[in-house]
Design a protein around this nucleic acid. Structure first.
Lengths: 248, 248
DNA sequence: CTGGACCCTCACGCAACGTAAGAGTGTAGC
DNA sequence: GCTACACTCTTACGTTGCGTGAGGGTCCAG
């Protein structure tokens, strides 16, 4: 009927110690115990273990995973859909690693000098981890964002995008000022409001995290740098200054 | 010229703390230090960091990586070739994870009962980690094996394969005996000798590890079970018994 | 000079188990 | 019934690779 720890461990590719640990922290508990104390896992337990291993694969800590799985509105199907997408991105990352290796090898064959940034392409976890966390870590915000935008038309999206780009351009025009210049802060505040109004209730701390992405996530960095060299760092500083003042 | 920690951290997708740590343990040291103590990393340092991150990506511990990189015969090009291959296998694994998700989703749509082993396909790290370790952990054995087999002809390979299969079939025929039956042990000993003679000097401990693979690695398990149901476990037990006695 | 970004060292703490010890359980074979 | 082996349990110390914070120095533009 059910499985004991050795069978489950082999089935799932984890150790018996891991199963003990997960039981101890209440993450994955066996449905039954024999009279002699043996753990017996049933189908539902294995389903849950699968979910745990997926989230773990995506970089979540065990306490985080436990919290997520215990939300009243946790939806297994939706989780699997998200996992699939995130795993696809993970696969993209491996492909980029492979490409980096190949490019390194080629440059060695040809005796050419490869730009150093190519060497490390694929090692930056942050974009994927942040993506996963956006999906599940800030789930309230993500859900609210999806609810609000569900009915957006193409025109709505264009309007929001235009507004965002407009604000960014204004910030770019102010980039020769100090990050805490009143006009800069006021413009940053408009970006904060835009997110809160159009996407989700964005706390100061969340906004601060978004600001940091400008310099830690190469996609964001590239976006800002296109508008004006140095804008990524300036934007990050300005958001930081704005958030510092919003807490006094 | 060189880079300080912030630039390197961003370039490589690691933290400054990580760079401090790697310096502290002598894994990746900056080529220079300014008068004020700032670390300055040069190109060679970044090359080494790349190597470290690749090995780390493949599951090696930092001490292991250090040891590997410090071998007199460490060959960067060969390492990159190996990394590419192992990364390809890693990619295969992600694809299997994706497939498992998709199959789980399909069975949910159709209300069918999916076999539980499908749920966890892709989560078994051991085959990939063992493969990496075979490449680098037991490098002496791997290298010796490659040297010996480099000149093997198709006929040689057929001969070795036939010999292996022959021994396995004999073991299968003895599988209704106890794992420590004298005939069983003697036949297992012939397998051990075959590996040592045809591939590499295989210590008892290494052979013990190979025996365990029969039950922990699904490729091996499948091979043995094809010959006879239950053979994988029997083989593992027999190898274990053989190794236990070979140490007295 | 000031402020902000960057840098340093030191050091405590933590997550997720790995490993081992000591002891009980289940079952097939003698 | 006994024995041996595979499996199980709980307890608990230890490990690896940093994260975080404290306290203080350096660099450079305004």
């Amino acid at each position: 009927m059910g499985h004991t720890v050795k069978a489950v461990a082999q089935l799932a590719g984890v150790t018996i110690r891991t199963l003990h640990h997960y039981d101890a922290i209440g993450l994955v508990r066996p449905g039954e115990r024999t009279e002699s104390g043996y753990r017996v896992y049933g189908r539902r337990d294995l389903e849950r273990l699968q979910q745990v291993l997926f989230f773990k694969e995506l970089g979540f800590g065990l306490a985080e995973i436990k919290e997520i799985l215990e939300r009243p509105d946790f939806d297994r199907r939706q989780a699997l859909l998200d996992h699939r997408e995130l795993l696809t991105h993970r696969k993209d990352r491996i492909e980029r690693l492979i490409k980096a290796v190949e490019q390194t090898l080629e440059s060695m064959e040809e005796g050419t000098m490869l730009e150093e940034s190519v060497w490390f392409d694929g090692f930056d976890h942050s974009r994927y981890e942040e993506e996963a966390r956006q999906r599940w870590g800030h789930t309230d915000a993500y859900r609210e964002s999806r609810e609000r935008t569900a009915a957006y038309t193409e025109a709505d999206w264009s309007g929001v995008a235009a507004e965002q780009t407009g604000i960014l351009k204004e910030i770019a025009a102010l980039a020769d000022r100090r990050p805490d210049d009143p006009d800069v802060l006021q413009t940053i505040g408009r970006m904060h409001s835009l997110i809160s109004e159009r996407f989700y209730a964005c706390s100061v701390e969340m906004f601060r995290g978004i600001g940091e992405l400008a310099v830690t996530d190469s996609r964001f960095t590239a976006t800002y740098e296109k508008l004006r060299p140095g804008l990524a760092a300036f934007y990050a500083s300005a958001v930081r200054a704005y958030c510092d003042r919003s807490q006094t």
